[in-house]
Design a protein around this nucleic acid. Structure first.
Length: 263
DNA sequence: AATGCCTCCAACCGCAAGTAA
DNA sequence: TTTACTTGCGGTTGGAGGCAT
């Protein structure tokens, strides 16, 4: 039996979120906290499916998100974790406070992958492409049907010869970040905990955007007071662009929510 | 200035896992 | 145990903006 769609599609809006929708969602979640996502759009007065609301919140609106490009240290950490965990983006994201799996996945596909190829490293196996190529040739000498692999790997080689000067990101990596990476990469117990799905302690304790008690599984969010503080400090977010000056009216809205009945 | 191509990333889709009845 | 439902995850897509011609 197939699964039902997460929403009935009829009357459900799709595509980019408007400022007004963001506002409604934030207001609702700030007032009520996260509850059943399926009920959120209805209760928040949104014509969206719950899945869309959850995605919008976790990937964009969540107050504990870091914004902007990944630092070199974060990037290096992603590479190392990917080498060990593969495309387990959520697991990788759990090691980078304030970063979402979607963000890391996108960054991997758009930046890191290319960077590794330029460096002559296979982004899938994390082995040097030369080695992969030699291996493939060895295999092809025994079997004749490995043409596809050659094409891919030759492409990689071609790219690597293009320009070996790795692009320097504008973000500098601090010594602390380097130490952080070392500690993570050398910490087998930490990686074991990732495999075992156990919540390991956040390594990046120096990052103060998330309270220490927050777990990797996102079982708890920063306090709503902190959320509000973030919203008031949302210059990066451009929140005023969509009339978020009203965030000071949260209390007012909460009063309204109190009176609001389920539609 | 106009056009086409490329890049990036927000959002969607479908599947799997977890869970309640 | 089975079924129905919710949530989370990873792959993919599409559109906006930037860049080259």
């Amino acid at each position: 039996m197939g699964r039902q769609p997460c929403c009935d599609k009829l009357g459900v809006k799709r595509g980019p979120w408007t400022a007004e929708e963001d506002k409604k969602l934030i207001n609702f979640l700030l007032t009520n906290g996260q509850c059943c996502w399926r009920a959120v759009p209805k209760l928040a007065g949104l014509r969206r499916c719950g899945k869309s609301c959850r995605l919008r919140w976790t990937n964009y609106l969540r107050p504990d998100l870091k914004r902007g490009l990944l630092s070199e240290a974060e990037e290096q950490l992603v590479i190392d974790l990917h080498a060990r965990l593969g495309n387990r983006w959520s697991k990788i994201a759990a090691r980078l406070p304030g970063r979402t799996d979607n963000e890391i996945k996108n960054h991997w596909n758009t930046h890191i992958k290319k960077k590794l190829l330029k460096m002559g490293i296979d982004p899938v196996t994390h082995e040097p492409l030369n080695k992969e190529l030699a291996k493939a040739e060895e295999i092809s000498s025994h079997a004749n049907n490995s043409a596809d692999n050659h094409i891919t790997e030759n492409d990689g080689i071609a790219n690597s010869s293009e320009d070996n000067s790795s692009t320097q990101t504008e973000n500098c990596s601090s010594t602390d970040d380097s130490n952080l990476i070392d500690s993570i990469c050398n910490d087998d117990s930490l990686l074991t905990s990732l495999w075992m799905d156990e919540p390991a302690p956040l390594v990046d304790a120096s990052w103060n955007g998330i309270p220490a008690e927050e777990t990797c599984n996102g079982t708890s969010l920063p306090s709503w007071e902190e959320n509000c503080a973030w919203l008031l400090d949302c210059q990066d977010f451009g929140i005023h662009d969509f009339g978020f000056d009203c965030i000071n009216d949260i209390e007012l809205n909460s009063l309204e929510m109190g009176n609001k009945t389920v539609a």
